[in-house]
Design a protein around this nucleic acid. Structure first.
Lengths: 212, 212
DNA sequence: TTTAAAAAGTTAACACTGTTCACTATTTTT
DNA sequence: AAAAATAGTGAACAGTGTTAACTTTTTAAA
């Protein structure tokens, strides 16, 4: 059925256009500005039309969340080829931080905002956060590879991975939320945020390195 | 002028009552449910009356943010007496995590949400986040005390403190946002969130300890 | 004590938000 | 050509923060 196919494609097309419009608004004007009505205006359709393609707003937000993970995985792609587990682990951390600095809105959507997680719990039967799991799994495997080389002796790989993730996420979260910025002037010296995080990350690497 | 004084007190009284109502709504029904109109209904005043005592909503949110820090400092109080710097550091971390688990809404308001930081940048000339600085300063002093005892050799105290804060904040942020929860079933074993964080924290302590 | 001024509080409205229901075109199938 | 399914819309509901104009209450002065 060629016609049916074309129709389906057309439908998928508008679904994509809605998401693209949402993405544009999200990246240029932020989360607050990404309203159903503004998305509708952007694609020149009625607000109610959106609901023919997405269940509700959180459905769109979640789709954007998934787009962010696609982008993050693209950034991770080259790291797969780094043979030294420890070098790979370091590169992974640096790449993660770089992503947060380059795409703070996406980072917030992916790792800070509650909405996508709530959407997951409500709409998905298995309630499994596949995107997050895939990223954590990459980290976990890298830690295990590191253990084969004598790193993290006597430590549980899951706990090491968790601690590393929390550590790097903490830095990124404090950056994207503006908490780090609000402390820079007074508490820290004249270092800027990026340098501060770089320094903190080096401390983490020092810890990891000294487990060998 | 006793009358003037009484008037001022009465005015301060209503200001307090507004904040108490906001706090009640915030803690029982969450941030979303804390609207100007609902606060007004709670204290049985018109919504516009609120604006006679607080500039806008973010002003109330910020006041609540400050209340949270008061509570956190109360929790920290007993730790001041711990003489061993390293033990104090460990207790500080545990206390911080405990606070996040016991008051997740406050934690989010204090360390995750952007609104209070934006309020700070807009309304305060010096734009200094005093509450955050005081907490970080306590951490920093503890790290420096630790250095006097031979810990963190060759490392900058500020960077060590930053890394430690980021690490613990990362755990708490992943908890309060629900990201940790969404990963528990599949990736980690049958451990629950609190145990997972406890384990990750122990890894951090292990790192810190091995710098001596 | 009456009157003018200042303070406190309210009503109605504006411009938004997500979402739903009833309706109208358009297209496809019978 | 008629019936049925699909696609899209307008109006409305119940909320949100916020402001301007108005009323009531309280205070201060004549």
């Amino acid at each position: 059925m060629g016609i049916q196919e074309r129709k389906t494609r057309h439908k998928e097309d508008l679904r994509r256009r809605i998401l693209e419009a949402a993405k544009k608004l999200f990246l240029t004007a932020g989360y607050e500005a990404t309203s159903i009505r503004k998305i509708a205006k952007e694609i020149e359709f009625s607000p109610t039309t959106i609901y023919l393609y997405y269940k509700d707003k959180s459905d769109i937000i979640y789709a954007l969340h998934q787009e962010g993970f696609q982008l993050l995985r693209q950034n991770f792609q080259p790291l797969m080829q780094v043979e030294s587990p420890f070098e790979r682990l370091k590169a992974l951390g640096r790449c993660y931080i770089k992503f947060a600095f380059e795409h703070p809105d996406f980072y917030e959507l992916m790792f800070v905002m509650k909405d996508p997680m709530e959407h997951l719990e409500i709409n998905c039967v298995e309630a499994s956060w596949e995107d997050g799991e895939r990223v954590f799994d990459f980290l976990l495997r890298t830690v295990r590879d590191g253990q084969d080389q004598g790193y993290f002796k006597g430590l549980d790989a899951t706990h090491v991975a968790m601690e590393a993730w929390a550590s790097v996420h903490g830095m990124c979260a404090l950056y994207v939320s503006g908490h780090l910025r609000s402390m820079m002037h007074v508490v820290f010296g004249d270092e800027d945020q990026e340098r501060m995080i770089e320094s903190a990350f080096r401390v983490l690497v020092h810890y990891l390195e000294s487990t060998k």
